[in-house]
């Protein structure tokens, strides 16, 4: 700071200057106290502006979601609605909407149960039994899981589902989606289980508890927040899945909400923004409610990081 020197001497000559007085009150505040202050204020303003822009960017779609369903003539922009409940009525007139919500629920719950049960068992075993190459196996599974349910695997998956007669069944969708979620679920749950000392289980074993009793009495209660996390995550994932049910289900009676949302177009191919926005709001509510409920109940917390 080259300007600091002359200022300093000027101060000492004329102690009545503002900065001089300020310095006397707070001697350790540093040489260029004034400039630092300005920089601090500017920095705060800059940060706040940046955050406001980011916040606006993300909140506009949410605002749209909150307003458009109640707008008689919604457009792609967010605006104050011409208030109406009519959109909900016309949405419920669509025969597939209600059944699609039920389908979504069925597929999400089925996958969540399957993922939680299988991942808990696998994670427990992997956490407690020394398997050679265990970590490598987990990482490879994790890597492949994005491929399994990804676009690239759609053709073989379709082929497989056809041969197994799983086309047009909820089971087919549940199995496919669970397969994709399992590796990550196992990975996260294994971390939870690694974090619980083995002496609890050994203690129970000495008292004669069987492995399943140990799992039920000791391990599951201890990793319950982890199980809740996985369940919520699985439900949210399945709830939003489009490609797999779209391909595996031919019958619109079995399609979940995410697929039905895609059919809300006019004959001419224009999106029915009124129905899409209303359905989107309706469709996102259960997940939000579930998240709030589970987070209240169990409080999402990860013991330690993903990897120690």
């Amino acid at each position: 700071m080259t300007r600091g020197e002359p200022e300093e001497s000027a101060e000492t000559r004329r102690p009545k200057r503002d900065e001089g007085r300020h310095r006397r009150v707070e001697p350790p505040a540093g040489r260029a106290g004034g400039t630092a202050m300005t920089r601090h204020v500017l920095g705060t303003i800059g940060r706040a502006t940046f955050l406001a822009v980011v916040l606006g960017f993300f909140s506009l779609p949410l605002l749209w979601l909150a307003s458009a369903p109640f707008d008689a003539h919604p457009s792609i922009t967010t605006s104050l609605p011409e208030f109406t409940f009519g959109n909900f009525r016309s949405l419920l007139d669509n025969p597939y909407v209600v059944s699609s919500l039920r389908n979504s629920l069925l597929q999400a719950a089925g996958s969540a149960v399957l993922v939680v049960v299988l991942a808990a068992l696998a994670a427990y075993a992997l956490s407690r039994v020394r398997v050679p190459g265990r970590d490598a196996l987990l990482y490879v599974l994790l890597l492949l899981s994005s491929v399994v349910t990804g676009t690239a695997a759609m053709v073989p998956l379709f082929e497989l589902a056809t041969r197994l007669n799983l086309i047009d069944t909820h089971l087919g969708v549940v199995l496919t989606l669970s397969g994709g979620l399992l590796p990550a679920a196992i990975f996260i749950l294994k971390d939870f289980m690694d974090g619980t000392p083995t002496s609890y289980e050994e203690s129970a074993r000495v008292f004669g508890a069987s492995p399943l009793q140990i799992l039920r009495h000791i391990v599951i209660p201890l990793v319950r927040p982890g199980l809740a996390t996985i369940a919520v995550w699985a439900v949210a994932n399945v709830w939003g899945s489009f490609l797999q049910p779209f391909i595996l289900l031919r019958d619109p009676d079995k399609a979940p909400g995410a697929v039905i949302l895609y059919t809300l177009y006019t004959e001419g191919g224009a999106p029915r923004l009124d129905l899409i926005s209303t359905f989107s709001l309706l469709y996102s509510l259960p997940v939000v409610v579930m998240y709030v409920f589970v987070s209240r109940r169990y409080g999402f917390r990860f013991h330690g990081g993903i990897k120690r």
Partner: peptide, 17 residues
């Protein structure tokens, strides 16, 4: 262990939290 009729107290006590 369960069929040996022994009871063990661990160093960290291993009380179920």
């Amino acid at each position: 262990p369960g069929r040996r009729n022994v009871a063990m107290v661990f160093q960290d006590y291993a009380l179920f939290p």
